[in-house]
Amino acid sequence: MPRDLPDRIHQQRRDLGDRIRALRKGLPATQERLAEMTGIDRRTLQRIERGTSDPKYSDLALLAEALHVTVADLVRW
């Protein structure tokens, strides 16, 4: 069952997804290509970019590496 999260958390997840999407497009790479580069399921990546998923730290680390940034750059508030 999904938990009720404050609106600020939902916004932070959307902001994270927006940053990941912008960095991915700057490569340029498709979601499918980024999924291949990281080993993250494409549907999981879609949910992360939409801000509807709480990514695991290991996924953030893989994404940061593929996008040539630090995890801190991805999750900055």
Rank of each mutant, 00 (worst) to 15 (best):
R8D: 01
M37T: 07
Q11V: 14
E65F: 10
A61M: 11
Y57F: 15
G26P: 07
Q31W: 07
A64G: 01
A66I: 03
L16N: 00
L74E: 07
A29D: 09
Q12H: 15
P55H: 03
A64C: 01
T70M: 10
L62T: 04
D54S: 09
R76H: 15
L34F: 05
L60D: 10
D41H: 13
I20F: 12
R19W: 10
P55F: 04
A29V: 04
R43P: 05
L45M: 11
L67Q: 03
L62F: 08
A29G: 02
T38E: 04
D15A: 12
V75A: 01
S58E: 15
P55C: 09
D54A: 08
E49S: 04
T70W: 13
I9W: 08
E65M: 12
T30A: 11
D7T: 03
H68E: 14
G26S: 11
G17Y: 07
L63F: 00
L23G: 07
I20W: 07
R14M: 06
A35V: 04
T38V: 05
R8C: 06
L34V: 07
D15W: 09
E49M: 06
Q12C: 09
D7M: 06
G26N: 13
P6S: 14
R21Y: 00
G26R: 13
T38L: 02
L67E: 00
R50K: 09
I9T: 12
G26K: 12
L16Y: 01
Q12R: 15
L23Y: 11
E49C: 01
R43K: 13
L5Q: 09
A66R: 08
R33A: 12
L16P: 00
D59K: 07
Q11W: 06
L60Q: 13
V69K: 08
L62V: 05
L67H: 00
R21I: 00
L16H: 03
R43N: 14
R42N: 01
P6I: 13
I40A: 04
I48W: 02
R13Q: 08
T38I: 04
G51D: 00
L5G: 05
D73W: 11
L62P: 02
K56A: 10
L62G: 08
L27S: 11
R14P: 02
V69L: 07
D15R: 10
A61E: 14
T70L: 11
T30M: 10
R42C: 03
G26A: 13
D59A: 12
D41R: 14
G51E: 01
I40V: 10
L27Q: 11
D15M: 12
R42F: 09
V75T: 04
W77C: 09
M1G: 14
G26Y: 12
S58D: 15
R3S: 02
E49G: 02
L34S: 02
L5R: 13
M37D: 15
T30L: 09
T44F: 05
R8E: 08
L16K: 00
D18H: 15
P28G: 10
D4S: 09
G17L: 10
H68W: 14
L23T: 05
P6T: 10
V75M: 06
